[in-house]
């Protein structure tokens, strides 16, 4: 099956016209984003996320390598037809109204007048701007611009949605709305490619992630696998002294906090044996869970290791 996004050895070197100084913004990135996936591209500031997306949508030309959308080189204009894009730091023309803007960008995607008339009010309602269609963008707040920008990206019902910091400047309720919209798109099989700093959000929403650092992929995989830890945590109450001693020899670590004792075991079998002992000893079990790290832990670790 062809991937929604596929890059092969993508390199972008910016060269200063005067000093000749080079910046390797994207330094040999090969990534595959499966059709229907929700993909998060993470990385510290200046890692090359925006540059990668610009190469993908042919706003900039790669120094080497190829970027493909559904198997076609994105430099062909037709290859970009299934893609919807919300750029970072966009500055939509302020003279346009919300309606006029959707009309303009929809037409550039090849939508005819009938399709536009039907689609525009629908989308304005979806992003919660139904009453704002006739108002000039100059009067929109930052979060509203972000929403109308999202509507713009959705105009032609794209099968790949590329969003560069989509929740930038949006309040928590708006963020929730945006996440709901994206979730329903995901259910319709739309591939979603997200650049974001908000790791908690990515962790909630994305299935796959790649962390890039200084233009290179530092880590990639399923969110589920990356955040899964290798150990098991057992937390119990009123553990007798004798049992504590016995379990301390088996556990990797033991911690005590406000009357609860927390044991960390290396395998599931060990954890289960401990559970049997604890239950036999009449202790109340508070939790038994697989340990996991947050995406933030993974991110910080990956970036610091580099």
């Amino acid at each position: 099956m062809t991937c929604a996004v596929e890059t092969k050895g993508l390199i972008k070197i910016f060269r200063n016209r005067w000093t000749g100084k080079e910046v390797r913004a994207v330094d040999g990135i090969s990534l595959n984003v499966e059709h229907g996936s929700t993909f998060g591209l993470l990385g510290p500031n200046g890692a090359g996320k925006t540059t990668f997306v610009k190469l993908l949508l042919s706003c900039a030309h790669p120094t080497a390598g190829r970027a493909m959308i559904f198997g076609r080189d994105s430099r062909e204009s037709e290859a970009r037809r299934p893609a919807g894009y919300l750029p970072e730091n966009h500055r939509f023309p302020t003279y346009m109204t919300g309606h006029g803007m959707l009309d303009f960008y929809g037409a550039l995607s090849g939508m005819d007048a009938t399709a536009l008339r039907k689609r525009i009010p629908e989308l304005l309602a979806t992003v919660g701007l139904a009453e704002w269609g006739a108002v000039r963008l100059g009067k929109y707040s930052k979060g509203m611009l972000q929403r109308v920008g999202l509507a713009q990206a959705l105009m032609h019902a794209p099968s790949l949605l590329v969003l560069d910091e989509p929740t930038d400047g949006v309040d928590p309720i708006g963020r929730r709305q945006i996440r709901d919209i994206l979730q329903s798109l995901e259910q319709q099989g739309v591939t979603i490619f997200l650049n974001s700093h908000l790791l908690a959000e990515v962790e909630l929403f994305c299935r796959d992630v790649a962390i890039i650092h200084r233009g290179k992929v530092a880590l990639e995989g399923r969110v589920k696998d990356l955040t899964a830890g290798s150990g098991y945590r057992v937390e119990a109450e009123s553990v007798p002294e004798r049992l504590q001693k016995e379990l301390r020899t088996k556990a990797k670590s033991v911690a005590e906090r406000n009357g609860h004792i927390e044991f960390l075991f290396g395998s599931r079998d060990e954890a289960n044996q401990a559970l049997d002992l604890l239950r036999a000893g009449g202790c109340a079990i508070e939790t038994m869970a697989r340990t996991s790290s947050t995406l933030e832990d993974v991110f910080v670790k990956t970036v610091n290791e580099q």
């Binding site: 204009s77 970009r80 500055r91 550039l108």
Partner: peptide, 18 residues
């Protein structure tokens, strides 16, 4: 030149238009 302003041109270029 307003069309070439950063933040505006990217969107135009990403459309399926030469």
């Amino acid at each position: 030149p307003t069309v070439f302003e950063p933040g505006r041109i990217e969107l135009l270029l990403s459309k399926p238009v030469e």
